[in-house]
Computed example of a mutant assay.
Amino acid sequence: MLTKVGNNVCGRFLLKNVNSLVPCNTFIKLKHTKDDVNAHRAKVMGRGLPEKKPLPGVKSIILVASGKGGVGKTTTAVNLACAMKVIEPDKEIGLLDADVFGPSVPLMMNISGEPMLNDDHLIEPLLNYGHVHGLLVSGENAVVWRGLMVMQALERLTRHVAWAPLDCLVVDTPPGTGDTHLSLAQSLPIDGALVVTTPQSAALQVTKRGVNMFDKLKVPIIGMVENMSHATCIECGARNHMFGNETRKSAEQMGLDIIESFEADQNMSDCINSGKPAIYALPDSIHAEKYRKLANKVFKYIETKGKERAEASKQ
């Protein structure tokens, strides 16, 4: 227990015995103020955190995240990256598969094989559809890793890859709120995050956890992307909200805008299985048009962030 004596704090330590707690007669006087203690605590908490520094040659980093798996997060990341390249062909866009536990990007991007090292001992990312892609674990292998191993893998996928030059790196993160998100936010200057969800209550509830996590990590959220919002009957054209219709209400509660909403479509599953993103396989579809709109919004967001940084540097 702790007792206060004047301006000093005395601590009586309890020694744990098998049968009882035995008070110890040892007292320690701490001649520090509360501010000193808080400063020391902050210093200790800061130990071991990686230094946040940019990736050489990478101008902007955007995370695509979801609280729950199976909501179309990777589909969003892949088609966003492709759409950004389509509407701005002169821009260099990268795609990083940071979901080391269940990499889906290789399937969706029709990528296979192991990356090679260049003369600078950096991983040369695999390339398809004009995008670079860092892949450490093959899609066939299951991964059982602890937090430290995840951090080491992310270090390789970020710092040991020949990314440059890139105007934007789109990062597909794992579902949930784990070591991957913490490591990325603590080591890289993240410009913003897109949170992906579906209308189910379970998905929306865990999305709130993800939003809280990004708030604590001081990662700005660009907005919410809603997948499988409804299905349209091919016979009569009626909309069926098979997963409910609570996304807008939840987004308002979280203070977020739904910047794009996608309905369920069998053609999207066909694109995933064939390894050809919808933005290329179905360029005239509603989904492709919406992905181009989403890409435009992300570009505008990045441009705004760049202006804000420029203004801040002048002050």
Rank of each mutant, 00 (worst) to 15 (best):
K59A: 14
G46F: 01
M45Q: 10
R47F: 10
G57I: 05
R41M: 13
K53G: 02
V78N: 06
L80F: 12
G48V: 06
T76Y: 01
A65P: 04
G69K: 06
E51S: 13
L80P: 11
A65F: 03
V64I: 11
I28C: 06
N79S: 11
G57L: 11
K59Y: 01
T75A: 10
I62G: 08
N38G: 00
I62F: 08
I28Q: 03
K85A: 14
V58R: 03
A65I: 04
T74F: 12
S60Q: 12
V44H: 07
T75P: 00
H40V: 09
M45T: 01
L30I: 15
A81F: 08
L49A: 07
G57T: 10
A42N: 09
K85I: 11
V64G: 01
N79E: 06
I87E: 04
V64E: 00
A77Q: 01
E88L: 05
G72R: 05
A42R: 05
P56L: 03
L55M: 04
K53Q: 13
N79G: 11
P54Q: 01
K43Q: 12
K68T: 08
C82Y: 05
A81W: 03
L80C: 10
A81E: 02
V78L: 06
I28A: 09
I61G: 04
K43P: 00
K73H: 08
K59V: 05
T76C: 10
K68I: 09
D36S: 11
G46T: 01
G67Q: 02
L30C: 11
V44E: 06
K34S: 14
M84V: 11
V71I: 09
L30A: 15
G46H: 02
E51D: 09
G69P: 06
S60E: 11
K43E: 13
S66N: 08
A42G: 07
K85H: 12
G57Q: 08
V37S: 09
I62C: 09
P56Y: 01
A83S: 15
T33H: 02
L80Q: 10
S60D: 04
M84T: 12
E88T: 12
G72V: 13
P56G: 01
P54H: 05
V78Q: 03
K53L: 02
T76D: 04
P89M: 03
P54N: 06
A81L: 05
L63Q: 07
I61T: 13
L30V: 15
N38H: 08
A39K: 14
P56E: 04
G67S: 05
A77I: 07
N38R: 12
R47Q: 15
G70I: 05
I87W: 03
T74K: 12
D35R: 13
N38L: 14
L55N: 00
I28H: 07
T76G: 04
V86N: 10
T75R: 02
D35P: 00
K29W: 05
K59S: 13
G67R: 03
E88V: 07
N38S: 07
A65S: 15
K73E: 07
K53T: 13
V86E: 14
K52W: 00
S66M: 10
N79L: 07
M84L: 15
S60T: 10
I87D: 04
I87L: 14
A65K: 09
V78D: 00
L30N: 07
G72Q: 08
V37W: 12
